[in-house]
């Protein structure tokens, strides 16, 4: 599956898109771990000291807000972004 990163999260990772592979029964949280393993510089920006997603980071799967325990499958598009600031 493919991660899309935006704004300062893309800057922290140094990439806007990152492809990761996880097991068949994996969760979005597992896919996030795979992303952070590939882009370690992103970890401090995305997670708090308890290792949970920071409150100011949005997590989407195929355009919908999801929790880390949601399921994930090959072909899904995952996204991480900061608070929106359009207008």
């Amino acid at each position: 599956m493919q991660w899309k990163l935006f704004a300062d999260l893309a800057e922290a990772a140094g990439e806007r898109t990152v492809a990761v592979d996880v097991d068949d029964d994996a969760s979005v949280g597992d896919a996030l771990e795979a992303l952070l393993a590939a882009k370690p510089a992103l970890r401090d920006r995305a997670l708090n000291e308890d290792g949970e997603l920071r409150g100011d980071v949005n997590l989407l799967k195929n355009g919908e807000n999801v929790d880390a325990d949601a399921t994930v499958a090959a072909g899904d598009e995952l996204a991480l972004f900061p608070p929106v600031s359009g207008g």
Binding site: D8, P82, P83, G86, G87
Partner: peptide
């Protein structure tokens, strides 16, 4: 309509002034 766009639509704004450059969500 504009309130909901500003709250819900994934758009991100970086501001450049004569002195500095920053992501607007970092100052909100």
């Amino acid at each position: 309509g504009i309130d909901r766009l500003k709250d819900e639509v994934p758009l991100f704004k970086k501001e450049t002034t004569e002195d500095e450059e920053f992501w607007v969500h970092d100052r909100a």
